[in-house]
Write a protein that binds this DNA or RNA. Structure first.
Length: 562
RNA sequence: GGGCGAGUGGCUUAGUCAGGAUAGAGCGUCAGCCUCCUAAGCUGAUGGUCGGGGGUUCAAAUCCCCCCUCGCCCGCCA
């Protein structure tokens, strides 16, 4: 399989070449023709100025000159001047060729690549359950991961476990000094959050506790066995809770990488040694880098004056390790990490290491303000999943009362998951959002369930169609619109990977569902006969398969009935 | 104060990087469509100074400058 939908690329390049030769211009301004044509050139505008002739006339002349080009004839490209626009139309519809691929399993997969890619996402601090902000990271990360795999990359997904931060020291202090009993049925991560919140309250009341927390951090960095064990125990328990939540979101990691391992294996010490040799190094009790030359106002601290390392040191060690083991590094991080991310990249470059590409997403807040684990102000992902699934179950029961309960439960689980994942992935990452229960519980238009429904509808038609002969002709406006959208799928996968923007896939899938629903409304499939029926059933098959591949790449179940 | 991001109909949002032909969509409101392939659907109507002001260009939501509003960041926290 090729990386780009070739029939289109070939035509694009042919038109480009012919236009360049004809106009003697390098930039022939070839753009998408939208509803007017497959491709359009606006070159007549700039030529008008040079040749002092109206653009309309130039377009006419140019069209006349190149319309009989033998390559155009061969590929079935026609040209028409409409006002100043040069419109190119493909008559040997390349959509047809792609339709043959589109009915096969795996449509949209690109050719295998040898590069090893590591993608880090979620990496939330293990001091409380994942909330609706964290899962924006998980869902963007997991969708990217699925798209990279579909695009043929050899990918490993990692979770970086911050197991030696101050928050964890506070958690451990809480377990040591406060009532730490786990409530009946209380999930591990929720338990940790409760103790963490209580410990923070104590800390506010009595700032003297800070010294005890600092002491714990020194002990853990020094490798004190009992302290390390305590940290590991609570962090592990919290991660167990995370894994359950993530599994319910259809998100999985290949490897959990523990921050403290980079202390234990000496990597952090080694990276500090290398940093000390940099000309930007500033050692005045603490160890830091002066990156002002690159526009960073504040110094980048690597090691405290008490000799303990800060997060940055371990993160540098982690990324150096990634650079040694992978060809390409991608991190999904919240917008709050923009500055330190840039400092990290800058430092890695100074060290001559491969730097990560960082995908940043803006914050999710609640109507009453920003979320805070410490203050206990958050909507947990578990609660969200429970509510949405409940709502989905009610909806399925209302629509399909004849189904038995376990079937309805299974559909509700898939529908709920679709609603959550789609709701989050559909908006572009640079947009900050406010969590809204009403929107989260909406299963109509522009939602995951809407796309699932279009897929289920296609499945139903195919089931009823039984026998048909594959036919790749396209006649009506609606058939063509659907085929055109199907044909865009491989290019969409490629675009998501190259731009690291998974919401493009979400938009694509919704538009495919839209065009299919319109087609469904206007063009009878099962009630048509002969060749018309064959070509429409074939088209439905292609839609069903493309929707399935799209949904699965979005981490959403392509269910056949709902 | 400085840096980064966002501002598109009442609400949510695509398009902005690679400027082009009437700025797409959903929710809401209003009017229609289930003896007909799944109505989680479809059709139509309503609704837009693309935050404001300059500039570049034949052409600006899109590029440049200034300003306003909101979010995030500016720790020997992570």
């Amino acid at each position: 399989m090729e990386d780009v939908d070739n029939p289109f690329k070939k035509r694009f390049q042919t038109i480009l070449k012919v236009l360049q030769e004809s106009t003697k211009e390098n930039d022939v301004q070839l753009i998408d023709g939208g509803e007017h044509a497959n491709l359009t050139s606006t070159i007549a505008f700039s030529l008008a100025k040079k040749e002092k002739k109206p653009p309309g006339t130039i377009a006419q002349e140019c069209a006349k000159e190149i319309s009989s080009n033998p390559e155009f004839k061969l590929l079935g490209i026609t040209i028409e001047a409409k006002g100043p626009y040069l419109n190119f139309q493909y008559n040997n519809i390349p959509e047809k060729d792609l339709l043959k691929d589109a009915i096969k399993p795996g449509y949209g997969s690109l050719k295998k690549k040898s590069a090893r890619v590591v993608l880090e996402h979620t990496s939330a601090n293990p001091n409380g359950p994942l909330h609706v902000g964290h899962i924006r990271n998980s869902i963007i990360g997991d969708t990217l991961a699925r798209t990279f795999r579909k695009a043929g990359y050899n990918l490993e997904v990692q979770y970086y476990v911050n197991d030696m931060g101050r928050q964890i020291a506070i958690v451990v202090w809480g377990f040591d000094n406060l009532d730490n009993t786990q409530l009946k049925g209380e999930k591990e991560d929720t338990h940790i959050a409760r103790i963490y919140i209580a410990a923070n309250r104590e800390l506010e009341k009595n700032p003297g506790i800070t010294q005890q927390v600092d002491h714990l951090m020194q002990l853990v960095e020094g490798g004190d066995i009992t302290t390390v064990k305590k940290f590991r125990k609570e962090v592990s328990r919290c991660l167990d809770g995370f894994v359950v939540t993530l599994k319910n979101l259809n998100v999985a990691h290949d490897r959990f990488v523990w921050e403290s391992d980079f202390i234990r294996n000496g990597d952090t010490k080694r990276i500090i040694g290398r940093i000390k040799k940099l000309p930007q190094e500033k050692e005045e009790g603490s160890l830091a880098l002066d990156l002002s030359e690159w526009g960073f106002e504040n110094k980048y601290v690597i090691r405290r004056s008490d000799g303990t390392t800060v997060y940055a040191a371990r993160d540098l060690a982690y990324h150096t390790w990634k650079a040694a083991n992978f060809d390409r590094i991608i991190d999904v991080l919240g917008a709050d990490h923009k500055l330190i991310g840039a400092q990290l990249i800058c430092t890695l470059k100074l060290l001559g290491e491969k730097a990560p590409q960082i995908v940043h997403f803006e914050f999710v807040s609640l109507p009453e303000g920003s979320m805070s684990t410490r203050a206990g102000k958050f909507v947990s992902a578990d609660d969200l999943i429970a509510e949405v699934t409940k709502r989905a179950f009610d909806e399925v029961t209302k629509r399909r009362p004849e189904l038995d309960e376990s079937t309805r439960r299974a559909i509700a689980k898939s529908v709920g998951l679709a609603a959550i994942r789609y709701d989050i992935v559909k908006v572009s990452p640079e947009k900050s959002t406010v969590f809204d229960w009403k929107e989260a519980l909406d299963f109509e238009r522009q939602s995951g369930p809407y796309i699932q429904y279009a897929h289920a509808r296609a499945c139903s038609i195919l089931e009823k169609a039984e026998k048909f002969t594959e036919c790749f002709d396209l006649e009506t406006e609606y058939e063509l619109a659907v085929a055109k959208q199907i044909a865009k799928f491989p290019a969409t996968i490629e675009k998501v990977v190259s731009e690291l923007r998974p919401h493009l896939l979400a938009i694509y899938a919704r538009e495919l569902a839209d065009t299919f629903n319109t087609f469904y409304h206007f063009e009878p499939v099962l009630k048509s006969e002969g060749a018309i029926r064959d070509r429409r059933v074939t088209l439905v098959k292609a839609v069903q398969n493309t929707l399935k591949e799209s949904l699965e790449t979005l981490g959403i179940d392509a269910i056949s009935t709902m």
